[in-house]
């Protein structure tokens, strides 16, 4: 069932602030095996001009994707999440996420397309800090495979 085109442009209320902790950044850096000290050592981060440790570039996805849940689970939109795979992901950064940030995400449905029975949903997540300054924007393309399509997905979450 094709998604309702009238949802294009719809924005959802900003999320409650997510407070970025040093140890959460460390946990993420260790999970991806990245030993760059700028992620774990405040002094190394300061030497590069950062106020505190910064997060790896894709760290923020955990925050924006949780925020995108408002869209994905919107009963009025009616997306079947069991058929959804992650198609594309893109970030544009004004500055890196860093420890101590309190980040809010505003999600907007940027585009809805229907192709060969698949629903393709583009969600933009604008991430701002406590001062209201822009930090990063995440674009997430989700593909809901056609219900009668038994073939394995090309993309995956």
């Amino acid at each position: 069932m094709a998604l309702d085109q009238s949802f294009v442009g719809r924005s959802y209320p900003p999320t409650d602030p997510y407070e970025v902790g040093r140890e959460k950044i460390r946990e993420f850096a260790e999970a991806v095996g990245d030993t760059n000290p700028v992620y774990t050592d405040p002094e190394a981060a300061k030497a590069l001009g950062h106020a505190d440790v910064i997060a790896p570039p894709t760290f923020v996805f955990a925050i924006t994707f949780k925020a995108a849940g408002q869209v994905v689970q919107d009963p009025q939109l009616g997306l079947d999440y069991s058929r959804v795979v992650h198609g594309d992901q893109k970030f544009t950064y004004t500055r890196p996420v860093r420890a101590g940030d309190r980040l809010t995400v505003t999600s907007t449905i940027e585009n809805i397309k229907s192709m060969a029975g698949n629903d393709i949903l583009d969600i933009r997540g604008e991430v701002h800090d406590e001062a209201g300054e822009h930090v990063v924007t995440a674009w997430t393309k989700l593909v809901a495979r056609a219900a009668d399509d038994e073939a394995p997905a090309e993309g995956q979450a």
């Binding site: 950062h50 894709t58 992901q89 893109k90 970030f91 544009t92 090309e154």
Partner: peptide, 13 residues
């Protein structure tokens, strides 16, 4: 410095 990355995108193929 990872802060040098101003844009990053991929397609999961």
């Amino acid at each position: 410095d990872p802060a040098a990355v101003v844009e990053y995108g991929v397609r999961f193929t």
